[in-house]
Amino acid sequence: MSTDANHEIAVRCQGVTKTYGTGVAQVAALRGIDLDVRQGELLMLVGPSGCGKTTLISIIAAILDKDGGQCKVLGHDLEQMSQNDRVRFRGKSIGFVFQVFNLLPSLTALENVAIPLLLNGVPRGRAEERVRSALDSVGLGERMNAYPAQLSGGQQQRVAIARALVHNPKLIVCDEPTSNLDHKTGQDMMDILRGVAQSPDRALIIVTHDPRILGFADRIAYMDDGRITDIIAGKHRGQLQ
């Protein structure tokens, strides 16, 4: 189900399929997904558990191989890339925000946020400057030396957002970013994602169960049983156009 927008396409999936298991245990997670995500857009993937949302963003984020179809991300055909190129592509071009934050518990907020920069070869001194700025932008400038265990869930997720943004990626994928947060913190988080993460040359894909945050989307893609069943314009559609 492609869109008809004039905006530059950040992600284009055509007929993407994925199955898990073999023989009688085989489960089709994706049954031919067609989806375009445009630059500057915040797209939400919504659907019941097991419908294939996480599988789809894993494929888009180049951390899972698809079985069939085509998937171009930021102009790159993932299938044509070697494993190492794909890892480097992820490190440079994609930011991740996870449901369970996935901060490294042994590192401070500052060190956690610095990881993408260090992986991209930025010297530690320069990385630190950029990390401070990223943490300031999510309101955690004062807690940069705190360890994850010393931060609340909301603060941890803000650190994760800073980590996803610090290297200025062109695509950010978020997996249930608000599901471990209370309503107020979830709304704050979405404000940050919309306000800080979204820019004209950057696409955001958010997988969510949380109906309370659907209002932040430019478009909402509904999934069921491995297929996209509907795509509707969100509240922010007007902004996009």
Binding site: I63, R88, N102, L104
Partner: peptide, 16 residues
């Protein structure tokens, strides 16, 4: 392992 997976997702090559 999970921490290594996170690092890998964020761009840490097998060599790293």
């Amino acid at each position: 392992l999970k921490q290594y997976a996170v690092l890998n997702a964020m761009g840490a090559t097998p060599r790293v």
